[in-house]
Design a binder for these strands. Structure first.
Lengths: 234, 234
DNA sequence: CCATATTTTTTGGTTAACCAGTTTTGGAAC
DNA sequence: GTTCCAAAACTGGTTAACCAAAAAATATGG
C-alpha cells in the first residue's frame, strides 16, 4: 500500500516536472498563442522521459485549455498570452488534493445556489426525479441501512435540476471525495439519517412550491450540523 | 476542420459507449465496492475496441472516483454502492460542454465567495501577489493594450488567497473557457478596461482592509455589467 | 493435512513499431 | 525567379509486444 502511494506520488512528480519544463520551453522560445510546440518525440527525447509521460502532461495542460493537440499536425499553445500561461501553469503545479474543510465549504456554497436555481428552473420531470431520489433515500434510511449514496443522489438530482451544467459538473467531481471523507471521519451516522428524511422532504417541498428563498433556508438548516462538525474537526 | 470535430465527437461517442458497457457489466455481474473488474485486455476483447480506449474510459471513471486502478493487480470498483454508481455514470454520460451563461453564473458565485474568504484569510504574501497582479493589469490597461489576461490573473490571485483549494481549482478550470467565450462574444472592450482599473482597485483595497462584506459588494459592482450582458446575449 | 517455498499466470503500465494524415522540401517545368 | 507537384519527412494517434510486480497455482517439506 505504501509503495503504491509512493509510485503515484512519483508519477505526479514526473508529470509536474515535465509541465514545468514545457513552461520553460515556452518562455525560452518566446512561443506565442498559435505557435507550435516541438513534437512529442522531440520533447520526450529532450526531457529524457517516455513519450507517454509527455502525452499525459500535454493532456493535462489541454484539459486546462493551455494547449491544443491537432491529430496529424502538432501541439499548439492556446489563444492565451505568455503572462496568463505562466500564471496558470504556476497554479496547476501547486494544485493539491483538496482538504475536507475546503471540500465541504465549496459543497455548501454550490448547493445553496443549485437548490435556489432548481426552485426557479425545475421542470416537471426534474421534480419527478428529485421525488424518486427522495423516496429511495427515505426507504433506505427507515430500514436502518446506510443511505449515504441515496443521500448524495438526492443532492445530485437537485444539481441537475438547477440547469447549470458547470455547477452540475462540479458537484459530480466533488461527490466521490466527499463520500470517502464522510466514511473516513464517520460523518452522517445512522441517527442523523432519520432526521435527514425530514430535512430532505422540506427541501423537496420548497422546490415543488418553486420558492427559492425557502428552499435555500431549508438547505442551510440541512447543512447546519455538517458545517459545525466540519469546523470542529479541522 | 470539420473532420477534426467529427473525429473528436466520434472518440467521445466511443468512450461513452465503453463507459456505458462498463456500467452494464457492473450491473449484470452485481459487482460491489471493492470487487475487481475484468482485466483491460478482457474488456477490450469483449467490447471489440482497442485497449487504449478502454484505458481512457477507465481513467475518466477513475477521475470521478468510481474506479480505482492498482498497478499490477487490477481495476476495482470504488467504495461506492451500485445505486450511486449508476446515477453518477448516468450523469457523466450526459455531461455537456458548459454554455456561456452557465459559466458566468458559476464564476460570479465562486468569485463573490473567494473574495470574501480572501478578505478574511489573506496573508501578507497573498496581498502582495494580488497587488502585483493589480499593477500589471493597470499598466497594461492604461497603455491601451488588451489586458484580459492580466484581468483574469488578478481574479486568480484572489482565488488563491481564499485558501480554499477546491474553489481555486474550479476557478482554474473555468478560466480558459471564459477567455475563449469573452473573445468570441467580444466582452470586455477596451473602454471597459479603464473602468475596470478603478473597480479592481476598490476590490484590492477592501481585501487589504480585511473587510469581507465591502469586498463582496465591490466584486458585485464589478460583475454588474458582465451579468447584464450575459443575460441579454443568451 | 498444513505451512512454506517456488514456479506460472495474470495484471496495469511502459516501450517501440506502425498508421494515416499533414507539412515541408526539392526540383522540374515554364 | 515563380509555380506547381510529387515524394520524403514529420505529426499525433493507434496498435501490439514487452516489463516488472502481484496473485494464483503448484510443489515441497514437515
Amino acid at each position: 500500500m505504501k509503495l503504491e502511494v509512493l509510485t503515484v506520488s512519483d508519477n505526479q512528480e514526473i508529470q509536474n516536472s515535465i509541465i514545468s519544463k514545457i513552461r520553460e520551453l515556452i518562455n525560452y522560445k518566446n512561443l506565442e498563442p498559435g505557435d507550435k510546440l516541438p513534437s512529442e518525440r522531440m520533447l520526450s527525447d529532450k526531457f529524457g522521459v517516455s513519450r507517454s509521460n509527455v502525452r499525459d502532461a500535454i493532456q493535462k495542460l489541454e484539459f486546462y485549455g493551455l494547449l491544443k493537440s491537432i491529430p496529424q499536425s502538432g501541439t499548439f499553445v492556446a489563444n492565451i498570452g505568455v503572462v496568463a500561461m505562466n500564471g496558470m501553469i504556476e497554479d496547476i503545479l501547486r494544485l493539491e488534493t483538496p482538504d475536507f474543510k475546503s471540500l465541504v465549504e465549496t459543497r455548501i456554497l454550490l448547493e445553496l445556489k443549485t437548490v435556489r436555481l432548481a426552485s426557479l428552473r425545475r421542470s416537471e420531470e426534474d421534480l419527478k426525479n428529485i421525488k424518486e431520489a427522495l423516496d429511495a433515500y427515505k426507504e433506505k434510511a427507515l430500514s436502518g441501512e446506510d443511505a449515504v449514496q441515496e443521500d448524495l443522489l438526492f443532492h445530485l438530482a437537485i444539481a441537475k435540476a438547477s440547469r447549470n451544467s458547470t455547477m452540475n459538473t462540479f458537484m459530480l467531481t466533488i461527490t466521490p471525495q466527499i463520500i470517502i471523507d464522510f466514511e473516513k471521519y464517520h460523518v452522517c451516522d445512522k441517527d442523523q439519517a432519520v432526521m435527514g428524511i425530514e430535512e430532505h422532504t422540506d427541501i423537496y417541498e420548497a422546490i415543488k412550491k418553486q420558492d427559492p428563498e425557502l428552499a435555500k433556508q431549508k438547505m442551510k438548516d440541512h447543512f447546519k450540523a455538517l458545517y459545525q462538525y466540519c469546523y470542529n474537526v479541522k
